[in-house]
Every structure is written in C-alpha cells, then in structure tokens.
C-alpha cells in the first residue's frame, strides 16, 4: 500500500501555532511535492510524521500505523531531514555502517548506496569535511540503505549543484515509476515542477492547495506563479 496519510495535524509550541490542521495524502507511484515558504510548517509536519516531534493533535500515519510502531522502519521508510544527519567526526562510510548494522543489513549494501549517490570516492573522508551537497548525498544514501518503499525527503535539492539536481529528479521519477511513494518538501518551485505529480501547498501552517500538478497550477502560467498567488496574502 505505502500510503502516507496526514490527518488534521495541529502543533503548538507555547502560544505559537505552527500547524493549524494539516491534512493530505501521499500515494504510491507518485512523487508528492510538499511546498511552502520557509517557516510554513513543512519540516514540522515531516518531523511529526517520523515520530521526532509530537503533534498537539491529529495523526500522521504510514499505512495506518504511526512511524514509531513500524516493525522494520529502515526497510519501510527512508528519511532525509536537515544536513547529513551524521556526526562530523565520522567518515561517511562509518556513518552508513552503524545505520546498516542497526537494521541488520549487509555491509555490501553500504557500498551500493555510496555508489548510487556518487559518494564512493569521499566515503573515507570525515563528514565534517563534506560540502553541503555531499552531506545531502550522504543523507540520501542513509535513506536508501533499507531500499524502502517510501521516501520522505526534506528539501532534497538544497545545496545540490545543477548536476545533482538533475540527477535527483531522474532518480525520484524512477522510484515513483517503480510504484514507490515519494514525499519531498521544498521552498523552491522552479526545481520541482518537472519532478512532482501531486502538489500540496502550505502556508502559515495551513494547506492552501492540494491536487495534481495540473490542478494546482490551474489558470496560472507556472507552478511558481500559482505558488506565489496562493502564499502571498493581499498580493495584486
């Protein structure tokens, strides 16, 4: 199945409302773009989905189960949040090895994912010496270790060079084409229009548009135009 279902998610920190009732789905075989300006609540939603933060109310489920109850999380969901998610003093390979070990994956899988993301040559270098783009590649390699059915990526194109962006687009399209679920967040519209099938736009903790790419773009010229029309209040 591999459906991600977010239902009426509310998150408050003190008196501040970060999410004000977010609902949407991400389906298998499709790339779902989760778009919004910085601070709109994208990362908070994804962190709640991954059990890192707690929702004030509402649910975020993976195949009708919360992430924390998954039997084999790494083989079900591959996640990439901020940066590399690795300690800077370790080498890229050492980082992937402990993740692999905790999921009972074979060492050879570490070299496979290094190859997939193009980090083989930097695998023996410490993560602290990586560029932003290399760190993101390591994060993606970590997400791919368990060859999961679902990918959840927070701002995956951030820090990647044009080559990297082109590569990740193709890569994610292929994942979706093979029937897997891809949910990615971004505040960059131009980069995404060619990658996503479905679009969820959020602003100030609320969903302002949800549909296929064509539906959301609607009468606007581009996804970017639609995005600004939806997220800029009082714009002409």
């Amino acid at each position: 199945m591999n459906v991600i279902t977010i239902d009426d998610l509310v998150k408050r920190r003190g008196s501040k409302e970060i999410l004000a009732g977010i609902s949407f789905q991400a389906r298998p075989g499709r790339v779902t773009g989760f778009l919004g300006p910085n601070g709109a609540g994208k990362s908070s939603t994804l962190r709640i989905l991954l059990g890192l933060d707690r929702a004030t109310s509402g649910t975020a489920l993976i195949d009708s189960v919360p992430f924390v109850q998954l039997r084999d999380p790494l083989a079900t969901v591959g996640a990439m949040l901020d940066g590399s998610g690795a300690h800077r003093a370790r080498t890229g390979r050492a980082h992937l090895r402990w993740v692999a070990r905790s999921a009972g994956l074979h060492r050879a899988r570490v070299d496979e994912v290094l190859e997939i993301v193009g980090l083989t040559n930097a695998a023996s270098k410490r993560v602290g010496s990586y560029s932003l783009g290399m760190g993101r590649r390591l994060g993606l390699a970590t997400a791919l270790l368990g060859d999961p059915e679902i990918l959840i990526l927070d701002e995956p194109v951030n820090g990647l060079d044009p080559d990297g962006i082109r590569w990740i687009r193709t890569f994610l399209r292929e994942r979706a084409a093979s029937g897997r679920t891809v949910l990615l967040s971004s505040h960059l519209m131009g980069e995404l229009a060619e990658t996503v099938d479905d679009v969820v736009v959020i602003n100030e903790g609320r969903v302002v548009a949800d549909g296929t790419l064509d539906e959301v773009v609607g009468a606007h010229r581009t996804l970017e135009d639609a995005f600004f029309a939806l997220t800029t209040s009082g714009a002409p």
């Binding site: 962190r47 949040l81 940066g83 590399s84 993740v99 990586y130």
Partner: peptide
C-alpha cells in the same frame, strides 16, 4: 553551511522507540 543537521534524527528514524 552544512545544513544544520543532527545525528539524533538519524538514530531515531533507525530505532524509533
């Protein structure tokens, strides 16, 4: 500049409990 990540996010997505 490196994205401001922390290892705890990786650790808890590997061992969610």
């Amino acid at each position: 500049e490196s994205g401001g990540g922390r290892q705890i996010t990786t650790s808890l997505t590997v061992v969610p409990s």
